[in-house]
Design a binder for these strands. Structure first.
Lengths: 147, 147
DNA sequence: TTATGTGCAAAGAGTTTGCCAGCTA
DNA sequence: TAGCTGGCAAACTCTTTGCACATAA
């Protein structure tokens, strides 16, 4: 069974090895934003014949092929997620490290506008909100397990 | 003559050495967002008896004393600026590396609102716009009226 | 005087790379 | 088969730290 990313690799004509296939599968199945070490752990769990260097080379390859997006949430290591056509920003729960994606069109418009008013053309941007759960709010992932 | 930062250090009761005084002066006079190496270069130009380790230790000390703000603009090294009470975000000119500060109250409000709607309380945030200068020399060519 | 700061070099963390064997197309 | 790919360890960048000496208060 081809993973989503493996299919994209095939479309792009990338040579597929077992290692790349495994890493592609791991990334296709990751709904979080894993760092290289986490990808490495998940990949070696499926197939021990993968080195950390290959993970680094492969995520870079995928990033350059626009298959992955690289993020830096300020903890000194790169985190990856599958590239999506739908742009979004990130809210990082600083209690748990969990990353929540969100999109807000008003903010998107403002970003463009600010750049223009300063005499620039927006090429890229980064918006990250670092936050703690509201005490009385729904996202209760502390003790209670999900059902 | 005491630099602005040196005065703050005195207020906070930090022990002042020649090295700290020099680094404080360099940072007080820097209107850009220098990285550690640049601070080191500027400091050693004033006084060669300063090691890079001391610069690292001093910027960390100043950061912990809320004298400096540390930024990470995605190039793998930390950049510093004097802490100001006035919050602002950054636009990075990707052609030159120049950093422009800006403040937009609409964005500030939206950040809070988004976090709240997701069930979180905003603790910190980061907004960076990566942009190139508009080819047109006149920045006032956007259709929206200025704020 | 005494706690603290500094210089130097070594150590760390994350990431990249040279080289040769191994595998894909 | 030809040439790209992977494993391993060494190298690299940025940053921190152990230790002995120097210095502010």
């Amino acid at each position: 069974m081809q993973s989503r990313i493996e299919r994209i690799c095939a479309d792009k004509g990338l040579k597929m090895t077992d290692q790349r296939r495994t890493i592609a599968q791991v990334l296709s199945e990751s709904i979080d934003h894993p760092d290289v070490d986490l990808v490495y752990q998940r990949a070696t769990a499926l197939d021990p014949h993968i080195s950390i260097a290959t993970v680094y080379r492969t995520v870079r390859l995928f990033e350059e092929a626009n298959i992955l997006e690289k993020h830096d949430f300020g903890d000194g290591r790169a985190r990856y997620e599958e590239a999506s056509n739908a742009h979004h920003d990130h809210l990082i729960n600083i209690k748990t490290g969990e990353v929540i994606e969100f999109y807000n069109s008003e903010i998107e418009v403002l970003k463009e506008k600010i750049a223009n008013e300063l005499g620039y053309k927006l090429v890229d941007h980064r918006l990250e909100l670092y936050a703690t759960p509201s005490t009385d709010a729904d996202p209760a992932d502390d003790e209670d397990g999900p059902s």
